[in-house]
Simulated scan of single mutants.
Amino acid sequence: MVAADPSPIPWTTIGWVASWYGSNIGVLLLNKYLLTNYGFKYPIFLTLCHMTACSLLSYVAIAFMRVVPMQSVRSKIQLAKIAGLSVVFCFSVVCGNVSLRYLPVSFNQAIGATTPFFTAVLAFLMIKKREEWVTYSTLIPVVAGVIIASGGEPSFHLLGFIMCISATAARAFKSVLQEILLSSDGEKLNSMNLLLYMAPIAVICLLPATIIMEKNVVGITLDLARNDIKLIWYLLFNSSLAYFVNLTNFLVTKHTSALTLQVLGNAKGAVAVVVSILIFKNPVSFLGMLGYGLTVVGVILYSEAKKRYSS
């Protein structure tokens, strides 16, 4: 009996994957352009704009467009847990935006690819979650790749490197924390509803931080906008893209699987590196690209090992 041909991938799924790639790479490149080439040196305010847009657009998407059913917060304890996640989420986004002031996107993505390493280490330390030794061994090229890439990076900047490592570790910490805090069936929220509640809390956290650390940023932004109105459009478009990254991420997962999303994410990082080098023309070395390639190979091996030994 001849096996039936596999079903073709629906155009809707292809469309959502393309949208996810476009919004993800777009917000990354636009962040870089605003914070370095354009000279808008206010990463905390930029993150505040992102979170404000996520708050408003999340509500519109869920309450009016009904992209997903609205899930309610059931207790003050659950709200406190969401607030904790929001603070960590905030920290990771701010650190990521600060790092883009000092590092090229290519190196930023190389460091960001080490998220599985931090997730595995934190899961072991916090919840005693053990993986097979084969799975842990695949993390060696992940870390080795970043060490090689750091040594061969012409635009290496220590503060940018520390901020990027902090952002990556914070993303991993949020994943593990989310598994701990929202593990019961009554507390689980899908990613869109979680963003709906996290984003306004992030705004509340970022507002005083912006006022204290980036004094008179609103006045400065308005003065810059009087000279170049495009700045306002850049900020509005950039903030909207930040929300669509989350929306398309959810929809790609819904139409494929979490594992497929991981594979697509690895490829997306490579695409972002190539596009950023073409646009910003930042210098890259053979050693840097070799290190990044080794990290990506390590992440792919890690994903395969997780799939094989957890099934």
Score class of each variant (00 low, 15 high):
Lys254Asn: 12
Leu159His: 13
Ala209Thr: 04
Lys268Ile: 02
Asn227Ser: 11
Val88Phe: 05
Lys307Cys: 06
Ser155Ile: 05
Val143Asn: 07
Ile229Thr: 13
Gly298Ser: 02
Thr260Trp: 12
Leu235Pro: 02
Ala202Lys: 09
Val73Glu: 06
Leu235Thr: 02
Tyr309Leu: 08
Ser285Arg: 11
Leu28Val: 13
Val245Cys: 06
Leu247Val: 08
Leu29Gly: 01
Asp228Arg: 01
Leu251Tyr: 08
Ala170Val: 03
Pro8Tyr: 05
Lys307Thr: 12
Ser72Ile: 09
Phe173Gln: 06
Leu259Met: 14
Ala169Leu: 13
Ala63Leu: 09
Leu29Pro: 04
Ser191Cys: 07
Ala80Ser: 14
Ile162Phe: 12
Lys129Ala: 09
Leu30Asp: 05
Ile212Asp: 03
Leu294Ser: 08
Ala167Met: 07
Ala270Trp: 03
Ile25Gln: 02
Ser92Val: 03
Asp185Thr: 12
Asn193Tyr: 05
Thr221Ser: 04
Lys215Gly: 03
Met51Cys: 07
Val143Asp: 07
Gln262Ser: 14
Ile211Ala: 13
Leu79Thr: 08
Ala113Phe: 05
Val284Gln: 10
Ala53Asp: 07
Gly145Trp: 04
Ser183His: 12
Val17Asp: 03
Gly39Asp: 00
Ser106Tyr: 05
Ser106Gly: 08
Tyr234Ser: 07
Leu29Gln: 00
Ile211His: 08
Lys188Arg: 15
Phe250Val: 03
Gly152Ile: 09
Tyr302Ser: 09
Ile162Tyr: 09
Phe45Asn: 04
Ala242Ser: 14
Ala53Arg: 09
Ile165Asp: 01
Gly219Arg: 01
Pro43Ile: 01
Trp233Arg: 11
Ala83Asp: 05
Cys49Glu: 02
Leu159Arg: 15
Tyr38Ala: 06
Ser239Lys: 02
Val93Ser: 08
Val93Phe: 03
Gly96Ser: 04
Met65His: 12
Glu153Leu: 07
Ile165Thr: 12
Phe91Ser: 09
Val252His: 03
Leu48Val: 03
Thr221Ala: 03
Leu46Asp: 00
Leu261Phe: 12
Phe91Asp: 00
Val142Ser: 07
Leu34Ser: 06
Gly269Glu: 07
Ala172Ile: 04
Leu222Trp: 06
Gly151Phe: 10
Arg74Val: 10
His255Glu: 15
Val284Cys: 11
Trp20Thr: 12
Tyr38Thr: 04
Val134Gly: 09
Gly15His: 01
Ile211Tyr: 05
Asp228Val: 00
Asn97Ala: 01
Phe237Lys: 05
Val94His: 00
Phe107Pro: 12
Val68Gly: 07
Glu131Phe: 10
Val275Leu: 14
Met289Leu: 15
Gln71Pro: 09
